[in-house]
Amino acid sequence: MEKISLLFRFIILFSVYAFSGNNSQPVSHTGNVVSDFTLQNVNGKMVSTKDYKDAKGFVVIFSCIHCPFGKLYHERLIRLNATYSKLHVPLLLVNSTDTAMFAEESMKNMVALVKEKKYDFPFLFDPSQKVAKDFKAEKTPHAFVIWKENNKWVIKYSGAIDDNGAHPEWVKKPYVTNALDELLAGKKVSVEEGQSIGCAIHYRK
């Protein structure tokens, strides 16, 4: 029986991670207030939302290295930042994927990815998953648009970046850019909440 109890501990450890909560009710994100955060960037320096004095809002995207769906979006991330950072809505890419489960989600590999893909925006490391938990990020990639209201960051959009991963040329609903254009024009976001599509972010208990 010793073998079974050893395996039982094994299974508890990983089954807790494995159960991605598909059976639970959909979580609502828009309207939630999230805190300022400070995380380490791939250049070793700490980056804080408070550093961006002129920011009207942020595009915060949770992604990681190993997820095949996240890998489809490299070029679109660069374009997002290029278009909107000069309009005072910078992009912050955050890796909150559990490093205990996925050894490749290391700062070393994040540095290599930024160099290879030529990211010119922060790729921040959230190994304690604190920021992901604050946003209630679900999958990688999960995109959020947060906007400053009454000195607080309010989630105005949560969900997928757009409606086509593998074929950018087929995108009909660029959810994040639509939300940003509406917010910058002072309008209400027409599609506020959608489903993030990709690999579940497993949270350590």
């Binding site: 095949p68 769906f69 409606d163 086509n164 991963g165 593998a166 009909k172 599509i197 690999c199």
Partner: peptide, 15 residues
């Protein structure tokens, strides 16, 4: 054994 995606319907791929 891996995660991937497939074009099963028009529009977005299915995980």
């Amino acid at each position: 054994v891996k995660d991937t995606f497939k074009q099963l319907r028009s529009g977005n791929q299915t995980i």
